[in-house]
Design a protein around this nucleic acid. Structure first.
Lengths: 129, 129
DNA sequence: GGTGTTACTATCATTAAGTATAGTGTATAG
DNA sequence: CTATACACTATACTTAATGATAGTAACACC
């Protein structure tokens, strides 16, 4: 039960000129995350799968404008990173569907925050212009 | 005090085939966020500034391998998006420093989650290989 | 068993993102 | 007043990401 969150630490160290190590560490960690979810389509795919396991075409229809090529490519990378797997659909057919792994689901908190921020940002932009 | 978080809603709707609208909405919001922080350097810059207001060269020294051109370019975009501003350093000098705006600071939750996930992911990769 | 759908792959073209290098006006220190 | 650091900008180049288009094996369905 680590109550002190990492960025809480960062805030404590905000004015500690002697510890640029923590800044570097934070940057690297954030870059690691971004590296895994980078590109135009990976997060949309993951979001689509949070709404349920889906087969190739179902994901494709969920995401406007994605091409087969990109969907195939991104799914492959997500499988490599163990965020997504193929499983048999839970019915009498033997159709294969893509599903988030338990590990893939650990991205949920981050995605929630990006979702909330994105909604708010869209509102802000509307106000401003 | 909106206790029901957006993705909580999403989970409730997970098996509601009749509402693909929510899936689309979630994807768009997440893409909006990603659009603002995309690229290799924007998050490192923001992280650097969470450790304190800094001038150009100080940020540059914080972030290994970033070039002047990219730093200038990314800072300009961050200023356009109102996440960063230039202010006078809080001392007797009239040095200008870059600082996160209050709006820029609203990214903190998202960055925290990316930070936590990134740390964990790095550990996982070490275990796996 | 012919037709359509599914789940891809291959190839090539285009666009976007990032790098390398050099240069310039302004501020600051000695 | 001069040298150096600072905060950029300009140009050219390279690499990475994405798009457009076509094709194909496997399966499903009448």
């Amino acid at each position: 039960m680590n109550k002190i969150s990492p960025l809480a630490d960062i805030e404590i160290l905000e004015h500690d000129e002697k510890n640029p190590e923590n800044c570097l560490k934070a940057m690297k960690a954030v870059q690691d995350s971004l590296y895994v979810i980078n590109g135009k389509w990976k997060l949309p795919i993951i979001v689509s799968l949070t709404f349920g396991d889906k087969r190739f075409n179902e994901i494709s229809r969920d995401i406007p404008k994605i091409t087969d090529r990109m969907l195939a490519k991104e799914l492959k990378e997500l499988e490599l990173n163990k965020l997504v797997t193929k499983i048999k659909r839970d019915d009498d057919t033997n159709i294969l569907v893509y599903a988030l792994t338990p590990y893939g689901k650990t991205l949920d908190n981050a995605i929630q925050e990006l979702y909330k921020w994105g909604l708010n940002h869209r509102e802000k932009i509307k106000e401003d212009y």
